[in-house]
């Protein structure tokens, strides 16, 4: 009922806005464009490095991600139907050269999923995160089909929490309803919190504060996962990404991932 009201209000608001005239919209948009300041600071570009030679394949990152991001535990029905949601997953051991690899969203610089979304529910944010605004998602699953890494998940049914108790959820991450697509956000809520506190305390954000920021990186016992600003040449993550051991998944897809793997070539 509530959602219906919201939808109706949105539709009416949209119609009213259209009726208000294209002219008003155009002028306002142009004014906004001219008023935009030149970026005084270099844009950040969040990225991640996963060192496969350090990784112990303990899957702690998978569990940490589930906990942090309010991903409902896999029920018996979903398990039987193989409908899991794992923003951070393990590529199964196979004949390929990448065996048992932890694989989050690659946060491509040229993400195919963003291009195909019919309603702009997924987009690349200015700091390089491929984000999903599930409130706008219509559940067409085109992005899932378009992703070469299969790193997007659809909510096949309403999420259920153990004992139907949602009070144990992380309040910083909104649980997703049935019928929408969801994905890894690089723990954007944590980045958000760190940035806001740094600004409130008028401190500079150091690379040390960022390195283990996402839940997966924080939980990793061998510190195989490093997070940070790829555009900052002094950051740990940029230093590792420049290593001769650095490789990217499916380079032939032309997506230019910002999640980079380190591996000794044999």
């Amino acid at each position: 009922m509530k959602r219906d009201d919201d939808l109706r209000r949105k539709l009416l608001a949209g119609l009213a806005a259209s009726a208000a005239g294209a002219l008003a919209g155009c002028t306002r948009a142009m004014a906004a464009k001219s008023a935009e300041p030149a970026p005084s600071r270099r844009r950040r570009k969040w990225g991640m490095v996963i060192d496969l030679d350090r990784c112990a394949r303990c899957a702690g990152c998978v569990v940490a991600c589930q906990q942090e991001n309010n991903i409902p535990p896999l029920g018996a029905q979903a398990a039987a139907r193989t409908r899991p949601i794992h923003w951070m997953d393990f590529l199964p051991p196979a004949s390929g050269s990448f065996t048992a690899t932890p694989i989050p969203c690659m946060h491509c610089e040229d993400p195919p999923c963003v291009k195909v979304c019919p309603v702009g529910a997924t987009y690349q944010n200015p700091e390089g995160i491929t984000a999903q605004v599930w409130e706008r998602c219509i559940g067409c699953r085109y992005c899932i089909v378009a992703c070469p890494y299969s790193r997007r998940y659809f909510n096949w049914s309403e999420p259920r929490w153990p004992g139907d108790d949602p009070s144990s959820l992380n309040p910083d991450v909104a649980p997703r309803p049935r019928g929408v697509v969801e994905k890894c956000t690089l723990c954007h809520h944590r980045i958000h919190a760190v940035l806001e506190h740094a600004r409130l305390d008028e401190e500079l954000l150091t690379d040390e504060a960022l390195r283990r920021l996402p839940a997966c990186a924080e939980s990793c016992p061998t510190q195989a996962i490093t997070f940070g600003d790829l555009a900052d040449p002094d950051s740990e993550v940029a230093r590792l990404a420049a290593s001769p051991r650095a490789v990217r998944l499916l380079p032939e897809a032309g997506t230019r991932p910002k999640v980079i793997y380190l591996r000794e070539t044999k």
Binding site: N125, E135, D172, A174, H189
Partner: peptide, 15 residues
């Protein structure tokens, strides 16, 4: 947010 030159990034408010 437009008038105040604040962030127009969706992730600034959507979680």
């Amino acid at each position: 947010h437009r008038d105040g030159n604040a962030s127009l990034d969706c992730l600034a408010c959507h979680k």
